[in-house]
Structure formats: C-alpha cells, structure tokens
Design a protein around this nucleic acid. Structure first.
Lengths: 245, 245
DNA sequence: CGTATCCTTGATTCGCTTCAACATTAGTGG
DNA sequence: CCACTAATGTTGAAGCGAATCAAGGATACG
C-alpha cells in the first residue's frame, strides 16, 4: 500500500541543501557543513493521493514527514464519530511528531490534495541529532513551535467568537502562503467548510455565514475556496477589539 | 527577584535518581548508568510563592523546569485582557517547553500554590542529550506528549459541550492524582472555577452549574475545591454518549 | 472578626446550532 | 461533450445551550 520510493545516493545528493523549502523545514539554520550530513536522513519520498492517509491513529510510529508538495490535515476522532481537525499543514512543515510519545500515532494525517513527503526515519533522526548540534536544536524548535501553535488554537477555541476565529484563520493562512512566496491577499483554500469548521470549533453553516458577512463588510472576496483579502487590517481589528465574551 | 538556590554537588548528588517523581519526570526510562550523569543537569532549585510567576510571556528563555512540589497553570493573554489557560501542571511535569521555539516564553506560568521546581538549563540539557541517548529520547517523548495533550484539549474545546468538558477535566485530574499515588476518587482542586472555566472555554458560572448538576445526578460530591468522584463510569459515559452537536 | 475572594443560583439574552431547502461545483460515465 | 449525480456551499427560520446580568452566600485570609 505504501508507495515509498527509495532514493539512490546520487538522486538525492544534497536534496535538502537544494530544496527551496529549506527555510521552512527541519534543516533551517544549519551550517553548510551540517547540511552536508543531512541527506543521510531522508530515506525515501512518498506520494499520497488526495483524501488518502499518510498515517492513521493507532498505526506504529517509525518516521516523521516533511511535506514537499501539497497539504494535509490532521484530525482526532471520538468514538461517537465526532471529528476534531487539529491542524492544517503546508509545504515545509513537519508531520508525525504526535507519534513519538507512545510510538503510536495519535491522530490521522490526511492529504488535502495529491502530495509528496520526505520520509525521515525517526531512529536515524535521533542518531544524527546526537552528532549534529544544529539539527538537534532545530528539531527541538520545530516541536516547540508546534506546542506554541497549539496554544494559539486553544486561545482561539476557548475565548474567541465565530467571526474572530475565522478572521484569525484567514490571517494565519495568508501569513503562511506569504512565507512560501505566494500572494498574501489571494489564495485557494484546500479544505472544505466542514473541515474549517471542525478546526475552528464551528459548524460548517456558521463558517459559511461568517464568510458571507466578511464579504458584505468588504473585508474579503469569497468564491467558494478562492479567497481574496481586501482589508487585512479590518480582519486584525476584528480579533483584537471584539468584546470579550 | 529570582529566589534560585544554587546546589552543591554533595547536596544534590543523585538528586534525580533518588527523587520519587522519577517515573513522571524527564529521567523516566533511563538506565542507571545514564541516571548517574543526570545530576549535572539540575543546576538549582527555585521556590515560587502562590500566585507568583515562574516565567512570563516575553521573558527570555534559558531553562525548562521540573515541578518538585506544588502545581502551576500556564496561560496566554490577549491584548483586550482575555485569558486562556492552556494547562495545569502537577509534580513531575515539565514547564517551559514553549520557550524553545523563539528563545522567548510565549505564555505565563503561575504557581497555584507555594511550589518548588528543578531548574534545567536548556543549553546543558541539549549538551547532555547529545551524549546520553536515554535522555534525548525521553526529552523528545515529553515534548511529543505535550503535543498530544494539546490535541486532546482542542478536541475538548472544539467539539464537546459544557458538561462533557468538565467530566473530561475531572477524569483527567483523577488519573493524574492516581499516577502520583493519591486517591483516584477524592482530591482537592488547586484552581478556581474561573481558571477551570478559562481552560475549558466556559464561564465560571457554567462550570459551577455543571458541578451542581453532576452532584444532583450523584456523579460527584462537590464542596468548593474538594471533589469526590462517586460514579466515574457515569462521567465516562457522559463524554462518549452525548449527542454530537 | 471583618473583608475580599470565590462560589452558587436564578432570570434573561444572545450566538451558534439545528433543520431545511436550494444553488453551485466537481466528478463520472455514456 | 453533455447528462447525471454526488459533494460542497449558501441562506433562512426556529430552537437551544451557554453567556450575561444580578443577587446572595460561603470561605479563606489578614
């Protein structure tokens, strides 16, 4: 089932060093000499079709993944079928960190579009991290960043109202598209209203209504998954100045 | 301001190895020979008075902390004064991981009672983790566990109703008290209704009402901060079988 | 012992969900 | 290529759960 593509030494030589995602990914901040050793790490690439899982809750953990192309969502399911989307991941971001704690994955990672990841065998990563200080440090930063991000989502879910949540979501997407060299103001969402809603703790209808409201107020132009931000400052004000609930 | 107590080699010799929190804390799972090296790590202890911060949002990151006695909350503040409690921490648990990503703390850590922590200078931890495989691995597990925990909180905030959230909170507290050798059914909460509410994304009145309801239904006995769980299974069923919203 | 903090309970309001109908887009096969 | 169907998105009306507003009571602390 797993369509892993083993990589010859030649084909991947300096794969990381040449990758244009360098600044977003694990190797960020490493010296050139350190980077040279990094290619030991990427054992394979793997293509995932839209809607297919990269890994599932309960499946054994053996690697983390760096997204080369495409995007993913991670979610947690409750026995009664309720789904909570815990995050959306874009190119250069790392998936699978949840698996380290129990050697079992604790969420599902599903491709939102046809995607490709670099497979980083975890045992190798730990080994190399013991030798390469820059890698160790960067890996810790990546994990810590995930923790900080999660705290931001808690803030969002715990103390913001629907429109604030959606505004925060749009600004976050915009910022991440920008970091990847795309327009800050114009982008295509890869997830459905239902998935956005699950992530934001809202029903899909509420998400749809909030989009419509933003459009009425001239903050954005929305056409299905296509988003154009007209007044980013307006969105920011929405988050800050709304009355506490 | 910082009441750090430097520790002589003699006084702390094998401090970790002898600590009864071993199994909950960073050293868990390390071999005896590995444990012998661990005392290099704990540079000092620090006492924190009730309501006082261990660190604050924006303060420079230089260490993580293992709780020896007492308990803490971590929270994030919005400009407009809204507070989101992101977690409650008990003995043996690690604080400060949020600071690694930017070398700046991204939340406040406040003592819920007079407490004491072991100060683990981060630079030393990284150094030792490169030499001691067991420490490296355990540290990664601790970070990963925090990520998994955060996903659980997202689930709670994003797709559970008030009473489910409180039930999940009580069961979680019970489980953590049990792990520390206390009664699973009877304990003293260290935080206020408002703090519980902030953590659960609810107002304090809602928390109070949910407590009262649980008591009416014979699930728990509540006297202010004293909690006695009468029907733990009932609480579990509340979480699972409630209608999806 | 007095006072500030914390907690409980009731009445009312409001924001989001639910239910429902319809519109639009994407995907599929003849 | 178009017809058909499923998936996704929008909008309206009604209901409900938690917030808000308000008052009183219990507890802890100096």
């Amino acid at each position: 089932m797993k369509a892993t593509v083993p990589i010859t030494a030649a084909s991947l030589k300096k794969a990381c060093a040449q990758c244009n995602l360098l600044e977003l990914c694990l190797p960020f901040g490493m010296t050139d000499t350190e980077l040279d050793r990094l290619d030991e790490l990427i054992s394979a690439r793997r293509k995932i079709k839209r809607q297919q899982p990269l890994y599932r809750t309960g499946s054994p953990f053996e690697a983390i993944y760096a997204i080369r192309t495409g995007s993913f969502k991670t979610d947690v399911l409750l026995e009664d079928g309720r789904e909570q989307v815990t995050g959306f991941q874009m190119t250069g971001e790392i998936l699978g960190l949840d698996g380290i704690s129990n050697e079992i994955h604790s969420c599902n990672a599903i491709a939102l579009e046809d995607s490709e990841v670099c497979v980083i065998v975890y045992a190798k990563l730990e080994e190399l991290a013991r030798e390469v200080e820059g890698l160790q440090h960067q890996f810790h930063k990546v994990m810590s960043r995930e923790i900080v991000r999660d705290h931001g989502v808690m803030m969002l879910l715990g103390s913001m109202r629907a429109e604030e949540r959606l505004a925060a979501f749009l600004l976050n997407m915009s910022q991440r598209f920008t970091a990847r060299g795309f327009s800050p103001a114009e982008f295509h969402l890869r997830m459905t209203r239902e998935e956005i809603g699950s992530y934001l703790g809202l029903k899909l209808e509420t998400v749809s209504r909030a989009f419509s409201r933003f459009q009425e107020e001239g903050l954005v132009i929305v056409q299905q998954k296509y988003i154009r931000i007209i007044n980013g400052e307006g969105l920011k004000k929405l988050i800050q100045h709304q009355a506490a609930r």
